[in-house]
Design a protein around this nucleic acid. Structure first.
Lengths: 367, 367
DNA sequence: ACACCGGCTGAATCTCTCC
DNA sequence: CGGAGAGATTCAGCCGGTG
């Protein structure tokens, strides 16, 4: 994704803007951000205070910003900020929202109503959730993230191979097992009390940003709070724009960002998707003599053969075509990746053509 | 809960009624069921044919009953059957609905709009989900259930101790790890093909009914399908009322129920679910900051070095791969256990990565 | 009898670029 | 905007056949 970078000239980069969420978003240019992460107020509807079995009071979320008169008011607020978010998002951009069962269904339905295209719902499984003290429900041990593209036809970014690498080389699933933000990671005020009631763990934002953005992308967090998004953006060398109404949070978050050291060139690299690798036409291997015209290729089980022609096509009897087309034709398949289908012999071993491509790309990269 | 039993005289018990969902519900008496389990159409909106990398075709859900012209029509349908469901539910009763990201946000929002009171959202984590074949999203590895009481002041049933016992004497969490319905459990037609495209596993209904109903309770399933709810109700000695519009499904489900043997008085119904072996991908250590990206690892004799990248791969020159692959590559070995091969330095001492893994697993204890 | 291997399958919104 | 073509992409578990 060339992304929104060219459009971001009017965007105040790497800052947390103090102000109301919607009002501040209205001052920013359309299509100027590549990705949005939003952790909106939860509308928790807590009735009175909650006590642990030992009668200590649970420090729940009871700040003013979490009080909404009713569902309709919450929906109105949600539609308003999500509409602005959609305007700010680049056409190929994606948005993440996080919530619990109190608000996630409102968020999801309104996302769909506004034309966002849901790509995944992702479950953050907490390794250390708060137990259900009254024993009247299941332990609420997860929160839900929704990942959505701006529209159905967005050509969004997903760093598939990086996610696979992060998960021991099997596809990353939609359920993520991560600890809560505790201990030293948790920001505290001068009295040692937690600064923000819902500070998100860095590991969560690390995975979110690694999955759906690339270096120098612009990430917007309209409910910046303790600044986890901003801090992880800086660490991973993405640009950020935060919005936060409470000056204390703005200050604490910017101080936090300043303490963050961006990863260096070696550490920031991730496994590349093949789709992004430099293109190398099969014909150039023949031109360069890497593979001599006249070489006979076969499938892995050596049931099918074809001969390499001087123009990089394959020939078998009266049939001729690209490595892909011939693979598909000779196996009656609708399509075929010739790079992995066709094999050549080297020192008695059958190797896929892809090996030659990798070698050739590696050789030219180091020049 | 004294429950709805006294009211159920006009209710046709332990049958699957052939008919349209809403129409049939209208014939049943108000407040007559203790619990509802509903697996409505998901509105998947599948477009073309999907093929696996081996070119085989995925047998998707293309049935007419899952097609809706737009979200508005889906919402209308949902409001209609949920309204009837609420009328049939006893004042202290609860409802379960299951869905995927395609429809669960519509379901949840409408439940709230109608006055249901959400108790939990529960995540069914699939042990064996279908992969994402195109590598364009996270593996869709879960479905979501919403558990809600008829109203905020319902004195609903929750068998807390039974759930705790089922979970090795720790509170049952909101994330459940259960396999898909496959193998012998899957109902098949005379050609050996699956009878119903979306048959739910018995383990799921077993847990649902065990959590939220008691012996002789009445359970309604307005989208009965293959009859998993009815079968598990009979096994657990609950009464059931099913509604299903396709006569073939009604017949197959009633035959299935007839094969079911109710548990006897002594049977303690704890089909213990497989405890999940604690797994920890190397990438998690990087995300969680246990090991910082940019750290240089080495073998025990410090002859070989590599740098940790942000996606949990190791980098050395032009080479990149998992801790295992890189260990093997750099030593020319066929394979390598990266956890014991690679070492990091702590207080001047070289320690294997495995130490970090053990520490991290111990800290988070029970997955 | 037992191990191993190949085949099959599951609620799936599943490509991208160039002409 | 439509069509053609290049080329990227899979995990766990069950079943049946074979050695």
């Amino acid at each position: 994704m060339s992304g929104a970078k060219a459009l971001s000239m009017d965007l105040p980069l790497d800052q947390i803007l103090r102000g109301e969420c919607v009002e501040t978003m209205r001052t920013l240019p359309s299509g100027s951000v590549d990705c949005i992460f939003a952790d909106p107020p939860y509308n928790l509807q807590l009735r009175g205070e909650l006590r642990r079995p030992d009668d200590s009071v649970v420090d729940g979320v009871d700040d003013d910003w979490d009080k909404f008169s009713d569902l309709q008011e919450y929906d109105r607020f949600t539609r308003e900020w999500l509409s602005e978010a959609r305007r700010l998002l680049h056409k190929d951009g994606t948005i993440w929202v996080i919530g619990s069962y109190h608000n996630i269904f409102r968020l999801g339905a309104i996302l769909q109503d506004l034309g966002f295209w849901i790509l995944n719902d992702v479950v953050w499984r907490k390794s250390n959730p708060m137990p259900n003290f009254r024993g009247r429900r299941f332990t609420n041990a997860h929160e839900t993230l929704i990942w959505a593209a701006r529209s159905q036809d967005s050509r969004y970014r997903f760093n598939y191979q990086a996610m696979k690498a992060l998960n021991d080389d099997v596809q990353m699933r939609s359920d993520w097992y991560l600890p809560l933000c505790t201990g030293n990671e948790r920001l505290r005020n001068e009295h040692g009390l937690k600064l923000h009631p819902t500070q998100k763990p860095e590991s969560l934002l690390h995975r979110v940003l690694l999955a759906s953005t690339t270096v120098n992308d612009v990430v917007l967090d309209p409910f910046s709070g303790s600044g986890t998004t901003a801090a992880m953006a800086r660490r991973l060398r993405r640009h950020f724009v935060g919005i936060e109404r409470h000056p204390d949070y703005v200050e604490a978050a910017m101080a936090r960002v300043a303490r963050e050291v961006p990863l260096d060139d070696d550490a920031i690299q991730t496994t590349q998707d093949k789709r992004e690798a430099p293109k190398l036409p099969f014909g150039s291997l023949v031109e360069q003599g890497t593979l001599v015209a006249g070489t006979v290729l076969s499938d892995k089980k050596q049931r099918i053969q074809a001969t390499v022609a001087a123009d990089g096509t394959l020939v078998s009897g009266a049939k001729r075509g690209s490595i892909h087309k011939m693979g598909a034709m000779l196996t009656n398949a609708p399509s075929c990746n010739g790079w992995t289908f066709w094999h050549f012999e080297r020192e008695g071993v059958l190797l896929p053509l892809d090996v030659l491509r990798q070698e050739s790309l590696a050789a030219t990269a180091s020049q």
